[in-house]
């Protein structure tokens, strides 16, 4: 009787958190196991809940297994799905890994498998969003040659975005702040970047300016960067009046993404 109850593993919404849950799921073989992330507070009746504590050893083991027994491509796929914001992502990952262990490296090509198909769709969505933020992210210069940008992505694309800008600006100091997750990517000149969690950006900037005794900038969050104005001038004058087409502009750059784009502020 006990074994027929639905078992739900509740884990942290992170790559390692989900993989820890996948590891634990294998301890409950023979039962119908589901994984949810703790951001969903929607409990089901008649199901048994188990809280999963993120364990980096366990997730490392799962990563190793995927890489060795399935393929590196499969690992990328799992990562792409894990950072997405799709509700069914954990169960898709679990099903994908299970079939992968059975069928080996060719699993990533079997698009007729609904879970593999779903993995592809989610991963495509995520990588599109990551690329999109490489395009529309805008830095503003705050005191002392530090560049600062805010993004609000649906999926957690911070790593991909930081990789891109670290390669692009090796000699710059910059911060990228995800205001949906309150995490902040930090890059210092000629060093590797790191990501800090639970950050209050305004407080961070204010403190930093205090250290530099540079409080001339208004506290409302605006940085008064002189190139902002120049960019707006360029943005307006580069458009051809006779061809104006706001519908096309909205098609190419939907309004919902314009929250942090300098030229639309």
């Amino acid at each position: 009787m006990e074994n027929s109850r639905k078992l739900i593993l509740n884990c942290e919404d992170s790559y390692d958190g989900i993989l820890t849950a996948v590891y634990d799921a294998f301890n409950y073989r023979g039962r119908s196991v589901y994984i949810t992330v703790d951001s969903e507070y929607n409990f089901e009746l008649f199901a048994e809940y188990v809280e999963i504590r993120t364990d980096y050893d366990k997730s490392a083991k799962v990563i190793n297994t995927i890489e060795n027994k399935i393929s590196k491509e499969a690992l990328y796929m799992v990562y792409g799905v894990a950072i997405s914001a799709e509700r069914d992502k954990c169960n898709v990952i679990l099903a994908f890994i299970m079939s992968g262990l059975k069928e080996g490296g060719s699993i990533t090509k079997k698009l007729t498998n609904p879970y593999v198909q779903r993995c592809y769709d989610i991963r495509k969505k995520v990588s599109n969003e990551a690329h999109f933020y490489n395009e529309i992210l805008r830095f503003e210069e705050i005191a002392g040659n530090v560049l600062c940008a805010k993004i609000s992505p649906v999926a957690n694309v911070m790593v991909s975005v930081m990789e891109h800008f670290t390669d692009r600006f090796p000699e710059e100091n910059f911060l990228i702040y995800d205001d949906n997750r309150r995490i902040c990517g930090v890059h210092q000149r000629s060093q590797r970047y790191f990501i800090r969690e639970n950050v209050d950006l305004d407080e961070l900037i204010y403190k930093w300016k205090e250290i530099r005794c540079d409080l001339s900038i208004d506290k409302s969050g605006g940085f008064s960067d002189s190139y902002t104005q120049l960019w707006k001038v360029f943005f307006d004058s580069i458009s051809i009046k006779e061809r104006e087409n706001y519908k096309l502009q909205r098609n190419n750059l939907p309004l919902k993404y314009r929250k942090h784009i300098t030229e639309f502020l």
Binding site: H131, I240, Q249, N251
Partner: peptide
């Protein structure tokens, strides 16, 4: 290292003007 910038094969387009 020491310089600024990279390029991407797919191209990166940053914004869209009023003419789309």
């Amino acid at each position: 290292k020491g310089s600024i910038g990279n390029t991407a094969k797919c191209g990166i387009c940053h914004s869209f003007s009023a003419d789309g």
